[in-house]
């Protein structure tokens, strides 16, 4: 039935071309944040799962906000993002069925190695941001409603600063993905908040380095949310559940722990620690 629908749009030539992909077997569509894709985590994880189950996982990597919206439109079978409050709201509003912890890493503050605002070695993330604001040092924000953006805004509000009033001045919102924002920060000699995985796998660091890290407030939890079939009748529920079970089970968790880049671990599995 689905296949006929898929071919409905074809003219002969298009049919010929589209056939190759339309014929593929079972798959699920994963609406994902970008850091997991950009770091190469999926290329490490998915082949093992696909090998075992024959279910292909198709990843659409966008910002967390966009991923949740797409899933809300029923354009995905599963959600893997990192903004706990938004994920829980998605479940509460009826789009998501169940939210589970998958893994964590942390956010880091990156900037020019000269560190003009002197944020290195500070007490906590709030103090670091205060120094940036006080010195009017350039800071680049995602500005795109992503998980990282939400985290950044919560840090600013924790110190009672609304940076958006300085937007266009020292505070610059790119409205883009993490990679594009990092490229902008490097180009502008600016500070930027990023998840550690994206930073480690980022190829264009130039003179930038991690200047502040390790504060508990920079904790970055990744969660997986299944889609409620009452809200989205077409959702591939069974296949999605198999992937979630695998990801949160011993095999998936071990695979996450085993993902290394340049000898560094990027994600720390913590399934079952704090599910809601």
């Amino acid at each position: 039935m689905l296949k006929t629908a898929r071919n409905w749009f074809c003219v002969p030539l298009a049919c010929l071309f589209a056939a190759g992909t339309a014929m593929a077997g079972d798959f699920i569509l994963l609406q994902s944040t970008t850091s997991t894709q950009n770091s190469g985590l999926y290329e490490h994880l998915l082949p093992a799962f696909e090998e075992k189950t024959g279910i292909q996982v198709r990843v659409v990597a966008v910002g967390t906000g966009q991923a949740i919206k797409n899933a809300g439109n029923c354009d995905g079978d599963l959600l893997l993002v990192h903004a706990r409050a938004a994920e829980e709201a998605f479940v509460a509003e009826g789009g998501g069925k169940e939210r589970r912890d998958v893994m964590y890493n942390d956010f880091v503050l990156v900037g020019p190695s000269a560190d003009p605002a002197g944020i290195g070695g500070g007490a906590d993330a709030g103090t670091a941001l205060e120094k940036i604001a006080a010195s009017r040092s350039a800071f680049v924000s995602r500005g795109d409603d992503s998980g990282t953006h939400k985290k950044e805004l919560s840090l600013w509000s924790g110190i009672g600063i609304d940076p958006v009033q300085y937007s266009g001045g020292w505070y610059r919102e790119t409205g883009s993905g993490m990679g594009a924002t990092l490229n902008a920060a490097v180009g502008m000699d600016a500070y930027v908040l990023t998840d550690r995985a994206t930073w480690i796998s980022f190829g264009n660091r130039a003179g930038h380095e991690i200047l502040f890290e390790g504060d508990p407030s920079l904790f970055n939890q990744y969660g997986v949310v299944t889609i409620d079939p009452d809200h989205c009748p077409n959702v591939r529920q069974a296949e999605a559940k198999r992937f979630v079970d695998w990801l949160l089970g011993p095999e998936g968790q071990a695979a996450i722990a085993g993902f290394r880049l340049g000898g560094q671990q990027l994600f720390y599995p913590n399934a079952g620690d704090g599910d809601s």
């Binding site: 629908a5 898929r6 409905w8 749009f9 298009a14 071309f17 339309a22 198709r58 354009d75």
Partner: peptide, 13 residues
């Protein structure tokens, strides 16, 4: 939506 074309090459075409 029922055509299930999103995220396929057909959608790009």
């Amino acid at each position: 939506g029922p055509l299930q074309l999103l995220y396929t090459p057909t959608a790009m075409i």
